[in-house]
Amino acid sequence: MNYNVLFAGFGGQGILFQGKVMAYAGLIDGQEVSWLPSYGPEMRGGTANCSVCLSHEPIGSPLVVTPNAFVVLNGPSYNKFINEVEDGGVVVYESSLVPDIVEREGITQYGVDATRIAEENGLKGLGNIIMLGKLFSVLHFCDEQSLYKAVEKCVPPKKAHLIEANIKALKLGMTL
């Protein structure tokens, strides 16, 4: 299975981090992976996105133009990319931040009220990771343990105390 995933939202929502955890999990799993951030004017205007590919073949273009999985944390990004999602694709959207859902046949969309759920569970700021947990529960893109190990790799040493909360957020997301 090739996973061509687009993560999108506002800068500061942890979009690039979400993608990095997924990419690292794939790497730990022994898959070929790539991670490509947007660094253009759109990022400077407030939105951020990154492309993540997981595959058992070497990855050609790391730029995901037509994702088969789309994780989205704001309305503008949802509107920009929703019609690019491949048929059969999966969308995980932040239901309180993406107000207008486009009904599209052939794709499966999961709304997650991640920001609120994070706050209610003492995981403020980890809505992004809850959403990654949800994506994992739908796609199982790697071994579950690889995902937890990836968190340990991606959380910087100075913030090591946040590893536990990130893993809790992943597990919480998997139950939604």
Partner: peptide, 10 residues
């Protein structure tokens, strides 16, 4: 190029 510079790979 900018793609190779900005992307992460193993």
């Amino acid at each position: 190029d900018g793609m190779l510079g900005q992307m992460m790979e193993p």
